[in-house]
């Protein structure tokens, strides 16, 4: 009981970091609308593309136009999350390394990894509550949206997907400790995540050799698997095993991040100042 209380107090502290990021995100109005418009446009372009491809009731690998209408909208909203995690974790870490804010955070009795994670979670909450909700409402009223087949497993799977990418983004952020300028690594991972997680097109539409390689990688667990659950394409057993694999990936990546952060900090060389 005492342990739980202590855990709860620590948890509350970390949620304060989420709140700070959430409020910070709220304060840029012009940026809010610009990004919203940009992402909405991408969804609309994708929609018209699929409308042309899947005209007259055609299907590709079992996807109908109705499926794709929902797919592009959810994927569009998920790209807000990917963006938030790339920016709020990888780029943030790189920025803190160069500005010296990292030092300040190392001087506080908090876990740097959890501090970074929770900040990003605050940003995600903002993205979903404001941008995500706006996009989905517009989409539902204008084009139409199929609700998730089984909401609870979908939300669980979505959270695990976010945690998997958070783990990857943290590892990418750590590269800045070793190669100073990691802008290239950052750009490359964000681009490949969008492709390999299935936010551009459903992964089944890739060549089969690629699909079998992707089975061994964590990327499809980020978005493609949650989306399969949304669309009701996984049975109960498959869903359970998918969620288990997700949990394994999420913890493996975060634990790797934990140890690599320790060794990276040990190598830290900050001269002068």
């Amino acid at each position: 009981m005492a342990h739980f209380r202590k855990f709860w107090i620590r948890f509350r502290i970390y949620t304060r970091f989420s709140k700070i990021r959430f409020i910070d995100r709220l304060s840029y109005r012009a940026h809010f609308f610009l990004v919203l418009t940009e992402y909405l446009l991408i969804i609309i372009v994708n929609y018209f593309l699929w409308k042309a491809i899947l005209a007259d009731g055609r299907t590709i690998r079992g996807y109908t136009l109705e499926d794709m209408v929902t797919y592009v909208a959810i994927a569009g909203v998920f790209r807000f999350i990917i963006n938030e995690l790339s920016g709020g974790i990888s780029r943030e870490m790189s920025g803190q390394y160069h500005s010296g804010e990292l030092i300040m955070n190392l001087l506080k009795p908090v876990s740097y990894q959890l501090y970074i994670y929770f900040r990003a979670f605050g940003g995600i909450l903002f993205q979903l509550l404001f941008r995500g909700a706006t996009v989905l409402t517009i989409w539902a009223l204008w084009v139409g949206l199929t609700p998730p087949d089984s909401p609870v497993p979908f939300i669980m799977s979505l959270i695990f997907g976010v945690l998997i990418y958070a783990g990857i983004a943290f590892l990418v952020g750590l590269t800045t400790f070793h190669i100073e300028n990691n802008a290239g690594v950052l750009f490359a991972t964000t681009a490949s995540i969008e492709l390999l997680s299935g936010t551009l097109i459903p992964l089944v539409m890739f060549p089969s050799w690629m699909v079998s390689i992707l089975d061994y990688l964590p990327f499809k667990m980020i978005f493609y698997i949650p989306m399969q659950i949304y669309l009701g394409r996984l049975g109960v057993e498959e869903t359970v095993s998918a969620l288990t694999v997700q949990v394994i990936w999420a913890s493996t990546l975060s634990i790797a991040g934990f140890f690599l952060f320790k060794t990276s900090v040990r190598k830290l060389t900050i001269q002068g100042g």
């Binding site: 030092i103 001087l107 190598k267 830290l268 900050i270 002068g272 100042g273």
Partner: peptide
């Protein structure tokens, strides 16, 4: 550049 800040950073746990 004498090594003051480096010492302080080691004592505060930032540098190893």
């Amino acid at each position: 550049g004498a090594g003051k800040s480096t010492t302080i950073k080691i004592l505060t746990g930032i540098l190893t």
